[in-house]
Design a binder for these strands. Structure first.
Length: 260
DNA sequence: ACCTCGACCTGCAAGC
DNA sequence: TGCTTGCAGGTCGAGG
């Protein structure tokens, strides 16, 4: 998409999680894509018009890229799935299709002046893989929080982009119980606790490893705790059995032996 | 201001 | 086979 012009936008329904904004397709058509960025779980596509296309995949959203004119069996028409909701046709011959069975995804178009006031973006915590994210930042964000550590990690204001799988994975890597109050890793006397140091490092390691696996298209990815209820803990020397609990309506997986 | 809960949707697997 | 139930990678508004 980067550098290309958006020649055509086809909306195959009127809404995803929310309605598309007024004039969505018209405001996109003919515009050039300046960049394709990400902040937390949001995709940001600034355009030459001064608008930014804001997108979120929700739970089940995905993009597919087809090459116009590429050979396909039978006709030259591209196949359309019933959950293909938006089709972008680009000047470089690419056709980018947004598919989302559950429609928890989101597309919005926001003028740059208003973008800075966009609530979720404005309040979003630090990018975990950026230099600015460390034990001190994490500890500060957890200060005074009465929620559990697991629920705090899912709060995008604490740290950006950590979802339900990697919240559990990071806590296991840091050997911290998901049930602890978030405030228990907060700063004492100006210095982050060892638990905050471990958790900040674990988040980075777990996310980098996950991105790596995806980059290598390794679909054999094995989680250490996620979806492993009843299975043995994978920590060396630990004889624990992975447990599943529900926190804030979401599944949490952890080892009750090595996570404290 | 902070927190928890249910709602929003469809698809799939397990159990009966 | 066909029904029901529960669960799924995420927000977000209502209400406590």
């Amino acid at each position: 998409m980067r550098g290309a012009r958006i020649d055509r936008v086809e909306l195959r329904r009127a809404d995803l999680r929310r309605p598309f904004p007024a004039g969505f397709a018209n405001r996109l058509q003919g515009r050039r894509v300046r960049a394709v960025d990400r902040r937390g779980k949001y995709l940001l596509v600034p355009l030459d018009s001064g608008d930014t296309l804001l997108m979120h995949l929700g739970m089940s959203g995905s993009f597919r890229v087809d090459r116009r004119g590429s050979r396909r069996a039978g006709s030259g028409a591209l196949t359309i799935d019933r959950h293909d909701h938006v089709v972008f046709t680009l000047s470089n011959g690419a056709v980018v299709t947004f598919n989302d069975p559950r429609r928890f995804g989101l597309m919005d178009l926001i003028g740059d002046a208003l973008l800075v006031e966009h609530r979720p973006l404005e309040q979003m915590g630090p990018e975990p893989l950026a230099a600015g994210f460390d034990a001190a930042a994490l500890a500060a964000a957890c200060a005074g929080k009465r929620v559990s550590l697991k629920v705090a990690l899912l709060d995008q204001r604490v740290v950006a982009g950590v979802g339900n799988i990697y919240a559990s994975e990071a806590l296991h890597a840091a050997q911290l119980s998901p049930l602890r109050r978030a405030a228990t890793i907060a700063t004492v006397a100006g210095r982050p606790r060892a638990s905050a140091v471990r958790l900040a490092a674990a988040i980075k390691i777990v996310l980098r490893a996950a991105i790596d696996r995806k980059a290598r298209r390794d679909h054999d990815a094995r989680f250490r705790v996620y979806e492993r209820e009843g299975d043995p803990c994978r920590r060396r020397g630990c004889r624990g059995v992975i447990r599943r609990i529900v926190q804030a309506g979401r599944s949490t997986f952890y080892c009750p032996i090595c996570q404290r």
